[in-house]
């Protein structure tokens, strides 16, 4: 790294990085504990449209992770921040389970539209309601634009197609707030007094986690867990800053790559990315 910058913040993806469905990535709890001994701010960042922070926290605590609610930053948080910034009152087309993340936001007489994954809201009457608001100038905010997702009984439409339909009908563009949007990563750092160049993002999604973070000026570390498939690291340009076996990978696995936590720890000690690169090389040669 050219700039001599200290590492001040670490962003960690949740699903696929700390846990896969209902099991923790083995050793991830311990690794997180060790990471906490380093002088860095930690944020857990995730694209979710269904789970509010409270539910996420409950699930992670059950899995043995030591995490505080205010360390979690989700696409719902990003949407909320945007609503507060714009001082608008949303029509919320989001799952009921996501509503707690919007507590305290005024919703009567709406002048904005927020679309998450909410099949129960995607009926003609509600779509028309959203459409008329947008046509009258209400901003359209999309939690994300996924095309479809897998359900037990087959594929099901995500919010993307409905957002696209509204965009077409009203001749507007939605503001997408989740990963890999640049603003998502920048918002996640808000209040940390940390510049993007001083942050690292660790995740299993090469495009959305690593590519998105690097596009925002951060360093991206790709882990080979979760949705990772061999060759993913070649999908983005510039390539991931580093690719590691897993979040908690140990030094003994150095042949497979080193652990992000070791890197971060080393980096914090040396307080510069430049010496950090040397540190990594050393860890390989040990």
């Amino acid at each position: 790294m050219a700039a001599r910058r200290a590492l001040k913040a670490v962003l960690v993806d949740l699903s696929g990085t700390l846990h896969v469905e209902d099991s923790a990535v083995p050793g991830a709890q311990e690794a997180l504990k060790r990471l906490r001994s380093a002088p860095v701010t930690i944020r857990f960042v995730t694209n979710t449209t269904k789970e509010c922070k409270r539910d996420l926290l409950e699930r992670l605590t059950k899995l043995g992770f030591d995490i505080a609610e205010n360390e979690i930053f989700t696409s719902l948080t990003a949407a909320r921040n945007l609503l507060e910034q714009k001082q608008v009152r949303p029509l919320l087309l989001v799952d009921d389970k996501a509503l707690p993340d919007f507590t305290g936001i005024a919703t009567e007489d709406p002048n904005a539209v927020v679309v998450g994954l909410a099949p129960e809201h995607f009926h003609y009457e509600m779509m028309n309601k959203a459409f008329r608001l947008i046509l009258d100038g209400a901003p359209l905010i999309a939690i994300h634009k996924a095309r479809y997702f897998k359900k037990k009984n087959g594929l099901a439409l995500g919010p993307g197609p409905f957002v696209t339909g509204l965009e077409y009908a009203t001749d507007t563009k939605a503001t997408v707030v989740g990963k890999p949007e640049k603003t998502f990563f920048l918002e996640a750092l808000r209040g940390t007094s940390c510049a993007p160049e001083e942050a690292v993002m660790i995740g299993d999604d090469c495009r959305d986690d690593v590519g998105g973070a690097q596009n925002a000026g951060m360093h991206g570390i790709l882990v080979r867990t979760g949705k990772y498939r061999p060759g993913d690291e070649d999908k983005i340009n510039p390539a991931p800053y580093l690719t590691c076996e897993s979040f908690p990978a140990q030094r003994e696995d150095a042949s497979l790559g080193c652990s992000p936590f070791q890197i971060i720890q080393g980096c914090c000690k040396q307080l510069s990315w430049q010496s950090f690169s040397t540190g990594i090389r050393n860890s390989f040669h040990n």
Partner: peptide, 14 residues
């Protein structure tokens, strides 16, 4: 009211 185009676009995108 939303016309067919909005849903055509939704299916095209999906």
């Amino acid at each position: 009211k939303l016309d067919v185009g909005a849903y055509m676009k939704a299916l095209e995108y999906a």
